[in-house]
Amino acid sequence: MNEKDFLKILGKTDSKYIEEASPTLKPRKKRTHIVWLSAAACIGSVIITAVAFHTGIFYKPSDGNIYTQKPSVGTHESNKTNSNTDKTDTKPNKDTDKIPEQSAKWPIKRVPAESSAEKVPVPKWEDLTLAQKYPTVQINDMEFSGQNAKLTKQTVGRELADVTATGFIGEAEKKADATAYAVIGIDERCAAAIKFDGSEEYYVYINSYYLPSTLGEFTDALSLEENIEFGAASYSYFENGAYKNIEFNDLDDSVIWDMLLSDRDAKSIDNYDSHDFTAEMTVGVSIPLLGYENIALSVTEDGYLITNILNTGKAFFIGKEKTEKFTDYVIDNCTGYEIVYVSDGEEIPE
């Protein structure tokens, strides 16, 4: 018996001892950075949920007060006039290093609040897809996780290996035989197509632990130039006791490529979880081939490009100058709306 065996055996110990030792629950400070949404989280929620994000930055300016977010936005004159907004006059000034007395005034867009994951019906085992029933598979000693997405036969490449996929009903492990194939245009270390014995469908499985060394390696591994789609950019700041969420809809793809994704040598960090990244500006991204819809590509104030593509956080240092320039560009050149969520006609405070 080794120490891991012991931990597992101890896991099956009497319930009374588990309850007896239940640790004290301590409330944690609300985290205000990107909440990653993984494939695993999707298993129970059939809906595709946008990655929820808050962009909070704690800082302590010279007045000694700690603010939740520095409203760091551009200071130079707007290059684009928007008849609906008066951004140049009203946007916060980052050089003052203080919360502005006058808030940014963006036109308000009221949108219905999305139903939360808690309200989503959880399907019965028999109603789950094969990828949901058997969410884990080992291919060449790498663990891949099932996405709730299917591939067409045209996007499936060479055969990689015969595999056994595993899943659980309660605590009982279930297994299913399958064949793993490459996905055309995707590095075999990143994703695979899984075809279960007796089924004609190909499911996308993702290696969440793939870690590229550079941004160029990452974009090549996923053929992002062909596969990625960009959505709205989002920015939020704290004002008068509430978060203001601003959405920009007309950001050109070429700007993202030029300003954020062009530095192919930008190094990836290998200890993402030990950093406390806070996104300053986030662009929604989709990779339909791999089943991703509206996940996040963000810049941080301290110069990182971060994303949750492939389910786990990845960060590339592209430099503070670039991330600031991008944020300023979006604020100055794109049409923004303050997003206010409403439910049954009532506004939901952030």
Partner: peptide
């Protein structure tokens, strides 16, 4: 993510299981 997965497993486990302690079961 673990909690989401655990809830799904719990959903698939009850019934047939009828745990003496729901806390211990979801914890395990």
């Amino acid at each position: 993510e673990c909690i989401n997965d655990a809830l799904i497993r719990l959903w698939n486990a009850i019934p047939p299981h009828n745990p003496k302690s729901l806390q211990a079961m979801i914890g395990k």
